[in-house]
Nucleic acid binder design. Structure first.
Lengths: 337, 337
DNA sequence: CTGAAAGCGCTTACAG
DNA sequence: CTGAAAGCGCTTACAG
């Protein structure tokens, strides 16, 4: 239980002012015209003693905590936990720590979380916003806190955004299915107003229109469990005979849907081709392996962090808003012809 | 950009001393014999103004940050991201925030992470320790910081631990396979010294011994990717003709292994029964669905957090170490007879 | 080039 | 019952 060393202790032991120590430690020795000799001596002493400045004290006086908040829909989801992993590496490399929290798409919960994090004075926010949280996000922006939205945006909120070209994802997916001679291409999606979902829907509709095909759509409630989704898919397929391809708007919908198709005794891709939006590492080992519209996770995380860091380090003015749209990859596997 | 209210502002506006405000806000009004009237007035004022105490300042003077560090092997893994989700709910309910980080099983990286978090003065640690980090964990304990290990423990470190009865998991799994008349039961596991892996191995061996069967074991390197694991499984099954059941020591090994079995044209469970250690939500929708030795995630998270909280709130003395062993559930699905 | 001093926003003995 | 004051460990004008 060695007592923690403070900057005072160091100043005393070395008989210099603590301001001098502080300047040296923060790389302002040159600027403050402190002799190299002294700087060297102080640095060496700190090194030897294993001195680590108290971040709390530092934060209190600078107003910067070097912490960022990652607020996702649900940290245990495949997509979000992978984004979290990639962001972590980038954050730590740049001296930031990440506090995560899950909104579970509940605006009320999200509001509380934002309030809690504000009291912690985190420096910036990366958020997948639920609909209904516009005012709080604007509140953050008004207080000059950098906010980057991702995965989905809020039409009325002007702030940085990093997301996928969802429209192109489903559009290309459908076009590929058309090329393989599918005639009745269904979409199974969530009943959701979120931008990424409406974009996926729009891409599907547009591609069908281009090829003069008719939409066949199942929308399931967000809160459904896997089993319920499977049941609804079975009913949907029965109700719409002749479906020969299905685009699933999320990876978990695809897994339920495949279960449904299996239970109906239909063959993939013989009877029905399948494409899932958002890749998943089990898709590769599934039998048959599942074709997917993939979101480049590391690229997304990279852009997200860069966008936030540019604001945090004042390389970009707060008011200058960027929208980064990442292109999806259509990965063809065994579930399509 | 409304200026943040401080306790000083409140004291001034209400013409009371800031210590009084502080006492009231911290529920010490009674104790300090402050009139209900005054307390009421202050509370109401703070409520109206939306005053949120600055956590940084609070932390600096109390020495408590109300933050805990969750250090797992990899935040994007199914098991860890789900534990993270459950822990989050418990932490927030109790006023704590969580900083996560991934060790990637690298002692060097873990060492750095611990140092970084120490400079942040987090109040407690929940860690899945890589082998080789004993000294640093002891360092935390010596400085009276509560540490709860989970998933695996370090034999030489005496601290709280929450983990699964891994031995029982594989033991019961093997016994069930024996009951279904399997004669040549293989184990596919990681080449790892971690306690959870050696326990799973031991349970397998013990059950075989009891039934006078011979072990057939494949150990794959930790760093392998899915594809490589599948290749090695194929070779392993070819090299050991007559395997009629396989226990996989992790869920991802199971997924690779199933791919291998499929590629060999063997039927599950007709030719080979399969049990996976650690459930995964795709197991349920796989075809056939996969039997699993399941770790109760929410129970585990609950015990983990309770153990840590008991220490943080001084309900249990730091020196009193607990070991909580959670019982696995054997979930039988389509991949076993 | 260096030092004394104020300040960040809290908590908590201590005195009255 | 309440208030003035010191302290947590830093940063940063300011003076010399």
């Amino acid at each position: 239980m060695n007592k923690k060393l403070s900057i005072n202790d160091i100043a005393n032991e070395l008989h210099v002012a603590k301001s001098t120590v502080s300047f040296i430690l923060n790389g302002k020795a040159k600027e403050k015209r402190i002799t190299d000799e002294l700087a060297e001596k102080v640095l060496k002493f700190c090194e030897e003693k294993g001195y680590k400045p108290n971040q709390l004290a530092k934060s209190l006086s600078t107003g910067k905590t070097k912490m960022i908040c990652l607020m996702v829909e649900k940290i245990s989801d495949y997509f979000f936990s992978h984004i979290a992993f990639h962001l972590e590496a980038l954050a730590y490399k740049n001296g930031y720590k990440i506090i995560y929290c899950s909104t579970e798409n509940d605006p009320e919960k999200t509001r509380e979380l934002i309030n809690l994090l504000r009291a912690r004075y985190v420096d910036g926010y990366i958020i997948t916003p639920p609909v209904g949280i516009e005012a709080e996000i604007k509140g953050l922006i008004n207080d000059n806190l950098p906010v980057v939205l991702f995965d989905r945006y809020l039409p009325n909120v002007s702030t940085d955004y990093v997301g996928l070209d969802n429209y192109k994802g489903t559009f290309d997916g459908v076009e590929y299915l058309v090329e393989t001679h599918a005639k009745k291409i269904a979409l199974v999606t969530l009943d959701s107003d979120q931008s990424q979902m409406t974009e996926r829907h729009a891409g599907y509709i547009a591609a069908l229109k281009k090829h003069r095909l008719k939409p066949v759509i199942l929308k399931v409630p967000f809160a459904n469990d896997t089993e319920t989704n499977a049941r609804q898919c079975i009913q949907f397929i029965k109700d719409n005979p002749g479906i020969d391809a299905i685009v699933f708007a999320t990876n978990y919908l695809a897994l339920s849907g495949i279960k449904a198709i299996n239970e109906l005794g239909l063959n993939i891709p013989g009877d029905i081709s399948v494409i899932a939006f958002d890749d998943h590492d089990v898709f590769n080992i599934y039998n048959p392996s599942i074709s997917a519209i993939s979101q480049p996770l590391d690229e997304m995380a990279k852009q997200l962090f860069k966008t936030l860091l540019d604001k945090l380090e004042n390389r970009v003015r707060l008011k200058d808003v960027s929208r980064i749209i990442i292109q999806p990859d259509l990965i063809l596997r065994g579930s399509t012809k």
